[in-house]
Write a protein that binds this DNA or RNA. Structure first.
Length: 231
DNA sequence: GCGACAG
DNA sequence: ATCTTGTCGC
């Protein structure tokens, strides 16, 4: 997968905010894609000042692991709420670039437009790769919502300043809901459908679970680790 | 000024 | 994100 360099990464937090304001207007909030046969999950872990990004590609709708890639890069940007993508995306793009299969949809670990400036990590990845993306957050960054029904599939709109910026979705009966929002080239209802279609018996979608496992996998000099068979 | 704050 | 064991409940 190739991507376009839209801005430098060696910038200040202040410049990062300006970049978000500039690129936010390019986010497409409606469906703009064809058949989905491969869904990817991306996640980033940290170790010894390095960001370890993992991209896991699953066949859709079977959800079997088709391919994965991992990238390790020095961290150059601090964690600042609202500017998460400037810390994680460089490593994510590196991992995505290593894939031979170009995913048709990417589920990102974090928010999409459910962000103060409507430009969370899912939007950032979507704009740079031009691949449809969905934001899947484990906790809330901004917005408010009513109590969510306890049954799997039930959800409540996430509101901010009178705008629906996402959905708080119950992916398992009686388990803490997750935060879904548009990343790029897909609408909210469709995002919810794909997240549910990518979820089996756990709270988080299989894409996210695979990426998280791979990103937190210890680096071994003797490769005795094989995700294909470890299951 | 005070509280909130993805990973 | 990461530091970290046991424990309550289906």
């Amino acid at each position: 997968m190739k991507y376009r360099q839209r801005h430098p990464w060696d910038i200040s937090p202040r410049e990062a905010v300006e970049i978000q304001k500039r690129l936010q207007g390019e986010v497409v909030r409606s469906n703009d894609f064809g058949e989905i046969s491969h869904v990817a999950g991306i996640d980033v872990g940290f170790q010894d000042g390095k960001a370890i990004a993992a991209a896991a590609v699953l066949n859709f709708p079977s959800l079997e692991l088709a391919e994965y890639a991992i990238s390790r890069k020095p961290v150059t940007f601090p964690y600042i709420p609202g500017l998460l993508s400037f810390r994680e995306v460089p490593a994510v793009l590196d991992a995505l670039e290593k894939l031979s299969i170009e995913p048709d949809l990417i589920l990102c670990d974090g928010q999409g437009i459910a962000h103060p400036r409507r430009f969370g990590i899912a939007c950032h990845v979507g704009i740079l790769t031009e691949i449809p993306t969905i934001g899947v957050g484990k906790t809330r960054l901004t917005g408010s919502h009513e109590a969510v029904g306890e049954k799997k599939g039930e959800w409540q709109p996430l509101l901010d300043k009178g705008e629906i910026i996402g959905a708080v979705l119950r992916t398992r009966n009686g388990v803490k809901p997750i935060y879904i929002s548009i990343g790029h080239r897909i609408d909210l209802e469709t995002s919810i459908r794909y997240v549910l279609a990518s979820t089996t018996k756990y709270r988080l979608p299989e894409t996210t679970r695979w990426a998280h496992r791979l990103a937190s996998m210890p680096k071994r000099v003797n490769s005795s680790t094989n995700p294909e068979k470890t299951g």
